[in-house]
Nucleic acid binder design. Structure first.
Lengths: 190, 190
DNA sequence: TGTACATCAGTGAACGCGCGTTCACTGATGTAC
DNA sequence: TGTACATCAGTGAACGCGCGTTCACTGATGTAC
C-alpha cells in the first residue's frame, strides 16, 4: 500500500465535486442545477459524480456536514455575553449570525431551496434552527418588558436575522441597524 | 348567439382550474405540482389544461392577477393612520399585512417558490413588495430615533412581517407581538 | 322551426425532450509471488 | 526488482422514466339559410 494514492485522489475528486457544486449552486441556484452542471464545473465526466455521491441531495448533505463541523469548531468562541439588556450582548449574537450566514451563504440558500421541495430537508432545517431559537429564548426570558412569549420573540429574531442577512449585500453597517432594531424590539431600551 | 353558453362554460372551467391549482399548490407545493395534479383535482383530462393556460406559470400569473385585483379593491380601506409614533398606526399596518397574507397565503407562497427558480417571477415579486417598502419608509422617515436608513428599516419590517406571518399559524395574538416588536424596534417607545 | 355545416371545449392516448442514472470500457494503481 | 493479475476511479455513450405538450377525435353549441 504505497500511501494509498488512489484513495487520496478519489477523496480529492469528491472534494472538488463539492466545491464545484457550491459554485454551480451560486450561479444557477440549487434547484436549477443539473448533475452535468456540477461535473462540468469540476471538469469531469457526468458518470463520475456517482462514484462519490448517489445524487444531488447527498452532495448537499455532505456540504451541510462540512458547514456544521466548522460551526461546532468555532462555537465556543469568546466574547459571549448573555445579558440582553446590554446592547453589546445583542450585537455579538447578531454578528455571529452575520458571519455564519455570510460564510456559508450558498449552502444555506441551497438548503432553503431544497427545503421548499423536500420535506426531509425542511425537517433538517428546522433541526438546525431550533437550538438557536432556544438559545436566544433563554437570554430573552431574563428580560422584563418582552413584547410576547420568549420563544415566539426568539423565533421572530432568528427569522429576521436569517432572511434579512440572506437578502442584504456585503454592507456590514446592516449589523448595527439590525442590532438596534432588535435591541429596541425586545424592549432593551426600557 | 344564445347567451354564449360555450364561452360561459369555458370561463367556468378556467376558473375551476385556478381553484384546483390553489388546492394542489396548498397540498403539494407549487414546485412539486404537476399539470395532471391540477387537472385531476379539477376532475378534468390532462389536455384540457392547455385550452385555458399555456403552462403552469401562466396559471400562477392568473392567480396573481386575481390577488392584485382584490387587493386594489380594498386598498383605500379606512383606518389608515400614518403617524408611527402612534402604536395604533403601526398595528393597523401589521394587521393589514396579516390579513392580506392570511387571505392569499397559498398564492403568495407559490409565488415565493416560483421566484426561487425563475428570475421573471423573482422580479415580479420585488415589484409587488417595493411599493409597500416605500410606503412604510415614508411613514418611518418622519421618526427621529430610527435605527438606520428609513428604506433599510422598512425593508426589515416588511421582511419580518412577510416571513413571520407565512410561518406563523392562525394565532392572531402574534399580530400584537409583531406590532410591539416593530413599534419598539423602530424607536416608537422613545 | 328545421336541416346542414362549422366551431369549439374537452378527451386521453401518444409523442418526445430533458435529465438522472447505468454500464461496458480504459488506464492507472495496487497486490501477490 | 519484475511480471502477471486484480481492483478501482473515471469516461461518455446509451438507456429509460417522468412529465409537459400535442393531436386526432367526440359531442355539444353556434350559425346560416
Amino acid at each position: 500500500m504505497s500511501v494509498g494514492v488512489r484513495k487520496q485522489q478519489a477523496a480529492q475528486t469528491g472534494a472538488e465535486l463539492k466545491a464545484a457544486g457550491v459554485r454551480a449552486f451560486a450561479r444557477l441556484g440549487y434547484l436549477n442545477t443539473k448533475i452535468i452542471d456540477i461535473t462540468a464545473e469540476a471538469g469531469r465526466a457526468a458518470g463520475s459524480f456517482y462514484t462519490h455521491y448517489p445524487n444531488k441531495e447527498a452532495l448537499l448533505e455532505a456540504l451541510l456536514a462540512d458547514v456544521l463541523a466548522e460551526g461546532d469548531a468555532g462555537a465556543a468562541s469568546a466574547g459571549h455575553r448573555d445579558d440582553f439588556r446590554d446592547r453589546a450582548a445583542v450585537r455579538w449574537h447578531v454578528a455571529q449570525y452575520w458571519d455564519f450566514y455570510r460564510h456559508h451563504r450558498v449552502v444555506m440558500v441551497a438548503l432553503q431551496q431544497a427545503a421548499t421541495v423536500s420535506e426531509p430537508f425542511a425537517e433538517r432545517m428546522r433541526q438546525m434552527i431550533e437550538p438557536d431559537v432556544h438559545h436566544i429564548a433563554g437570554h430573552l426570558a431574563k428580560l422584563d418588558d418582552l413584547p410576547g412569549d420568549p420563544v415566539t420573540v426568539a423565533r421572530m429574531v432568528t427569522t429576521l436575522m436569517g432572511t434579512f442577512i440572506a437578502a442584504a449585500d456585503e454592507d456590514e453597517s446592516a449589523i448595527d441597524t439590525l442590532t438596534d432594531f432588535i435591541y429596541n424590539g425586545i424592549g432593551g431600551r426600557a
